[in-house]
């Protein structure tokens, strides 16, 4: 039996797993499903906590970086990023 990684990335409304999901991405290393941009209009979980409750393991989250002086009002990338994984066993 081999192991494959599934990755779920959630962007939340504020930097706490309790917060609502505003953007999401899934990459399925088992090859069972090909996810792509624009493939779902509803998030897989309402909040980050709901992903944990469903067995996803958090392995990275974005840091709080103070705004650069003079650039406080510059808006850019989505801020509150959380990477989760699930390992799946099977014959791949």
């Amino acid at each position: 039996m081999a192991k494959r990684q599934k990755v779920l990335v959630l962007y939340l409304k504020f930097p706490s797993l309790e917060a609502e999901v505003i953007s999401w991405a899934t990459f399925d290393g088992t090859g069972k499903k090909l996810h792509m941009t624009g493939d779902s209009d509803e998030p897989p979980y309402p909040t980050g906590l709901d992903a944990l409750l469903d067995g996803w393991r958090l392995f990275q989250s974005s840091q709080a970086i103070p705004e650069y002086p003079g650039q406080e009002f510059r808006t850019s990338y989505l801020k509150h990023e959380f990477f989760f994984e699930k390992l799946e066993e099977g014959d791949f």
Binding site: V21, S23, W24, A25, G38, D39, D41, P43, Y77, L78
Partner: peptide, 12 residues
Amino acid sequence: FGIAKYQNIKGQ
């Protein structure tokens, strides 16, 4: 394409 990892965005 620095935003390419946002597969789905609410309100798209």
